[in-house]
Structures are given as C-alpha cells and as structure tokens.
C-alpha cells in the first residue's frame, strides 16, 4: 500500500558543514606543517629504534649509593628553591595583586600593575633563570629568583581576579565605622579572600616544585643540574633514577596539596 510520498524528514543530526571545513583545514595544516618541519613516518620509525636503545640503556635505574646521595642533594636543593620562591613570590604578589584589582585602587595604578604582571607572566621561567644566572651567578639563588618572578606573574593575576570578585557590602560596612584604608583591608577584604589565596599559594608551590627540577639545566641550581650532567655523559640509567624520583615527589606533593586545598576552602 503506497500512500502519497511523505515529505522527507530532516536528518536527526544534520551535517554541520562549517565544522567539517574547519576539521579539514586542521588536517591540511597538519600535513603542511609535517612537510616543512621534516616530520615523517620514516623519521618516527628510525626514532623508535633509537628509543629502544635509549630505554635499554636506562634500565635498570642506577641506584649506586654515591649517585643516590648526589641526587638527594639535588632534590633537597630543588625543594628549598620551591619553598623559598613560593614564600617570596606569594608575599610579593599580595601588594602587586592588590594594586591590580580595579575595584580597590585607581585605574592608573591597576593598569601599571597589570603591565608588570604581564611581563612576569610572558617569559618562561627558564628564560628568566638565564638572566638571573648572568646577574647573580650560578646556583640556587638564580633559580629561586626566577621562580619568584614567575610566581608573582601567576599568583598576582589570579589574586587580582579574586579581589575583583569580592562583595562590597563588608567594605561599606567597615568604611561606615570610619575605618582607615588599612583597617578596611584587614577587616573587610582579607577575611573574604584568605582561603582562596592560601589555595592559590599551595597550587603555586606545586608548580614551583615542577619548575625547580628544571632551572638547573641553565645553571639555576637544584636537581636539573645533576640531570643535565648525567644526560650529557650518556648516564641514562642515572637519568631514569632522577626522573622516577621527580615523578614520585611530584605525585606525593600533588596529593598533599589537593588535600590541603580541601581543608582551606
């Protein structure tokens, strides 16, 4: 029984041509970049061969006592760098973040502070480390100062955003009592933001610990120096030991910091 043809129903999921074209564009871009960057299957395959050799030389990880004591020294220095740079970086972020909060300070000051923050944030910690190694010489101080700068960039930006979200009611209430600007800060602003600021600092410690394992590659102290030396001497088994220790420490720290952030919020 054939009735009159039903009007064709629209497809349940109509084709979305703009999206398809965008995906095709990404594919074309990928192929183009692979060709100009000399990324090819042949190189990947020959790389697998090297990778097998590399892993062969990495296993088993070197656990000779003298190497381990060297690694322990480096790790301790990395932790020190992370602790100090987080402390100084978050401490300096307090005034910088406050100066960048547009609801609390005049606009000219906020714009100037935002410029400073942008400069701190734009450079990778490694580039800042290179400059500090030139300014204050090799060693932990250079790495620490570099991480202070990058901590300031990250923490003050987010701290300024937190400050801009605070409720103005408490501020009005405290101001109505005739409190000075300092007292307004202490009694109206700080209680609203302290929890999130501590959370931010703990997160930054995590991030600084990761970066403190790296600044040693350019002379900024910490485990990176030992790692880079081992790498240049082709002691890949020592490299693996260091990598495993770094991963273990960072997992530990990440678990601890997520717990701490739960407590403080």
């Amino acid at each position: 029984m054939n009735g009159p043809a039903l009007p064709s129903r629209p497809a349940a999921f109509p084709a979305n041509w703009p999206v398809r074209i965008a995906y095709a564009g990404l594919l074309v871009y990928t192929l183009y970049v692979c060709s100009i960057l000399d990324v090819s299957l042949a190189r990947l395959i020959s790389g697998l061969d090297h990778a097998a050799k590399l892993f062969g030389r990495m296993f088993p990880p070197n656990s000779a006592p003298d190497k381990l004591s060297l690694i322990a020294d480096g790790m301790i220095e990395s932790i020190q760098i992370a602790v100090l740079s987080t402390f100084l970086g978050t401490l300096l972020s307090l005034p910088l973040g406050l100066a960048a909060a547009r609801n609390l300070v005049p606009l000219w000051l906020a714009s100037a502070a935002r410029m400073v923050i942008a400069v701190c944030r734009s450079f990778h910690p490694i580039i800042i480390s290179i400059l500090f190694v030139k300014a204050v010489g090799f060693g932990a101080l250079a790495g620490m100062l570099a991480l202070v700068i990058s901590s300031m960039g990250f923490v003050s930006k987010l701290f300024a955003e937190i400050l801009e979200e605070i409720s103005l009611k408490q501020i009005e209430a405290i101001r109505a009592t005739g409190a000075s600007f300092t007292n307004v800060l202490i009694f109206a602003v700080v209680p609203q933001v302290i929890g999130r600021f501590i959370g931010l600092s703990v997160y930054q410690f995590d991030s600084n610990l990761r970066n403190s394992t790296m600044v040693g590659i350019v002379g900024g102290g910490g485990i990176g120096a030992a790692l880079f030396t081992a790498y240049q001497r082709f002691d890949y088994d020592v490299v693996l030991t260091i990598l495993l220790i770094i991963i273990a420490l960072i997992i530990l720290c990440e678990v601890a910091s997520s717990r701490i952030r739960l407590v403080t919020q």
């Binding site: 220095e77 020190q80 932990a140």
Partner: peptide, 12 residues
C-alpha cells in the same frame, strides 16, 4: 619548611 630552607640553602 620555610625556616629550614632559609637556613640551609647554599647561596654564595
């Protein structure tokens, strides 16, 4: 941690 780091970090 802070005090320990301040006291023991090697700075020339």
């Amino acid at each position: 941690a802070l005090v320990w780091s301040f006291k023991t970090i090697e700075i020339i």
